[in-house]
């Protein structure tokens, strides 16, 4: 089983994605989805040497809900900055966020979250994956922004992935 399905989660995601793309549950689309879900993880196995360990799938769902909510709030904030704030008053800042996450998947998730949420954008990783460079659109207090990212997102991801 391990040789046939090196990445069960990837296989499941591919199966679901293909069925949603095809938009039907007919026999040929199910067969095609099953074939892709088997072949793609096998062919790309060299690029995924180890499996991510998700300890708490339920917490993952609640994390995604939190992020979705924050995306909506973030957009209202960014829209207000764009529309009503004079350009000279916008205080942009580069912020370094030290991170301590067990696997690259968690780091990718954190970087994506940061880009989609309030006025911040991941610009760079450090070479040893222990820090993120973040650009904040309007951050009068960069330290507070950094602490919020660490307490709000990073601590949750740490609990999910280890």
């Amino acid at each position: 089983m391990r040789h046939l399905f090196p990445h069960p989660m990837l296989s499941a995601t591919l199966l679901l994605a293909w069925l949603l793309l095809a938009g039907s549950l007919s026999l040929n689309s199910v067969l095609m989805a099953a074939m892709l879900a088997m072949l793609i993880p096998l062919l790309t196995r060299a690029y995924w040497p180890n499996r991510p360990q998700i300890r708490h799938p339920l917490r993952m769902v609640s994390y995604l809900a939190l992020v979705l909510w924050d995306v909506i709030i973030a957009n209202i904030q960014v829209a207000r900055i764009i529309l009503f704030m004079p350009a000279a008053q916008i205080k942009s800042a580069w912020i370094t966020v030290p991170v301590d996450l067990p696997c690259p998947e968690a780091l990718t998730l954190l970087a994506g979250t940061i880009t989609l949420t309030p006025g911040t954008l991941t610009a760079e990783f450090s070479a040893d994956n222990k820090a993120l460079l973040i650009h904040a659109l309007h951050a009068p207090d960069p330290d507070a922004t950094r602490d919020e990212i660490k307490s709000r997102y990073e601590s949750r991801l740490q609990r999910i992935f280890r």
Partner: peptide
């Protein structure tokens, strides 16, 4: 992320250090 990397590569803005031994990627 890729656009930010391209921007940093071309115009080299001043950025803070990483705080670890390794430089920015």
């Amino acid at each position: 992320l890729m656009l930010a990397k391209a921007h940093r590569h071309l115009s080299r803005p001043a950025v803070p250090p990483t705080g670890t031994e390794a430089p920015w990627a």
